[in-house]
Design a protein around this nucleic acid. Structure first.
Lengths: 144, 144
DNA sequence: TTTGATGCAAAGTATTTGCAGACTG
DNA sequence: CAGTCTGCAAATACTTTGCATCAAA
């Protein structure tokens, strides 16, 4: 997964939609795609503050809302300090969340979509998206 | 799953812990275990208000916090109007959530624990709990 | 009687919104 | 230049907390 490539993709998509690429917005995009640790809005704000000291948290939220609208960011929906996001792989995938240090690890499961489809069809349900999160202790926090 | 039995179980557990069974608390417990539709705190509050008109929402939250502490309630962690809860089956299980009408359906998956365990061990992760939610349209909202 | 529980209001937090002014395209 | 974006502050909405009072055991 190439960060630079993904950043350019996002910029192209926004340009094509007629969205403006302001310095703040680009900084937010860069921070989002660069951060492998699934940042919160607050964290993104902190990261870009040194470069753009007047950037407001509201702008971060507005940019994230825009990305959600076009499906280019995945809202993880947990965290003590608000929701965290994945802008590097904006499609549903399992997460392993450490309840001690807060680390969020990505994962993949073979044939997971099959499992979801069969579960849904059994209930007459039409799937739009899903969330699969496992909470526990990461290797570093397991006490080994 | 017997509602009455579950209510008695909760009362016993609380009694044994030295918690008091006030009328409000019992009413909250009863409302929680009776509601198959995964109620929110607000909803529980509405349900018991006719019987105990002065019961505060804070007390509902405090009771739910107590149940969370002893693992007798499952916080689902989504909903436009705050979190919803499952006090009938307080262990993790998949939910099918209708994004149109908000219905939350329960489900079960065979060997799901195996899948989780293998996923976790592959990453050196110690599992505590998990969450598996599928979002989409329920049969009633699918337009059939 | 002892202490945990209640209920009120106020505080906390994460997120959204309104609007005047700034700036991209 | 037109229209979007920004930044500030205020508004939301859910949940928690402090504290005086009340009541279960």
């Amino acid at each position: 997964m190439d960060t630079q490539e993904r950043l350019e993709h996002l910029q192209n998509v926004l340009r094509e939609r007629g969205n403006r690429l302001t310095p703040q917005r680009v900084a937010i995009l860069r921070a989002l795609v660069s951060d492998k640790r699934h940042p919160s809005a607050e964290r993104i704000h902190d990261v870009i503050l040194p470069d753009f000291p007047t950037t407001s948290l509201a702008t971060v939220y507005k940019t994230i809302a825009l990305l959600k609208e076009i499906g280019e960011i995945l809202e993880l929906g947990f965290g003590d300090d608000g929701s965290h996001f994945d802008c590097r792989r904006p499609y549903p995938h399992p997460h392993l969340i450490c309840t001690k240090c807060g680390a969020i690890m990505d994962s993949e499961v073979d044939n997971f979509q099959n499992l979801i489809d069969s579960l849904a069809s059994k209930n007459g349900f039409t799937v739009q998206t899903h969330r699969f999160d496992i909470f526990g202790l990461c290797p570093d926090c397991s006490g080994k």
